[in-house]
């Protein structure tokens, strides 16, 4: 069960109407390493992982939905008053034809989200290593979007989200250490 708080995890500000940035940002909405994929991946893997790390997957999976909501707000703000002409210039003409101004779970190239993006191998180490890789890929994606963006307010939010990816990767690495059960053990060689 979840409790919903009707506010964003971090304030989303957008300084210019720039549908092109929305086209890039949608990668983190419905892309392979996006927030939707992350949330569904962790909240699904947690059923078949040792008890000690279930809570971590629940917490991080839940936070990914808060990130998804931030990305959605960014995309919405960047496109809500854009004319069909502006969307066309931004390369979102095909999106407009299909969805009008609605958001959709697809990546920056327009490929719809698929469950094939996420894995649940059932092997705790394999799954956690996938999660670490997913966080690093999401971090890199944020870097490339920041590189393409000239909107300082938007970048502020993206920087926050990127920092969270670093923390999540750290926690997943720590989960691996916990499962190794070698921590705090006196080592004699």
């Amino acid at each position: 069960m979840w409790i919903y708080e009707k506010k964003l995890q971090y304030p989303v500000r957008v300084s210019t109407c720039n549908p092109k940035l929305a086209k890039y940002l949608i990668e983190q909405y419905g892309g392979a390493d996006g927030e939707l994929a992350a949330a569904l991946r962790y909240l699904n893997q947690r059923y078949s992982i040792p008890d000690k790390v279930i809570g971590l997957l629940t917490d991080i999976g839940t936070e990914e939905f808060a990130h998804l909501e931030m990305i959605a707000t960014m995309v919405y703000k960047l496109t809500k008053d854009a004319t069909p002409e502006q969307l066309k210039e931004a390369g979102l003409d095909a999106h407009y034809v299909n969805h009008d101004n609605a958001l959709f779970y697809n990546n920056a190239a327009g490929v719809p989200w698929t469950a094939a993006y996420i894995q649940a191998k059932g092997d705790p180490i394999a799954d956690l290593y996938e999660d670490i890789a997913a966080e690093e890929k999401a971090r890199a994606t944020y870097q490339w979007i920041i590189n393409m963006s000239d909107d300082p307010d938007l970048n502020d939010g993206l920087r926050f989200l990127r920092e969270r990816e670093i923390i999540h990767a750290q926690r997943f690495r720590e989960a691996v250490e916990i499962l190794k059960e070698e921590r705090d053990r006196k080592k004699f060689f």
Binding site: Y142, Q143, I146, N147, M148, S149, D150, P152, N155, R159, R162, E163, I166, I167, Q170
Partner: peptide
């Protein structure tokens, strides 16, 4: 763990 990233335009 704080490691902020800035783009070329900022």
């Amino acid at each position: 763990f704080y490691d902020p990233y800035y783009g070329p335009y900022e």
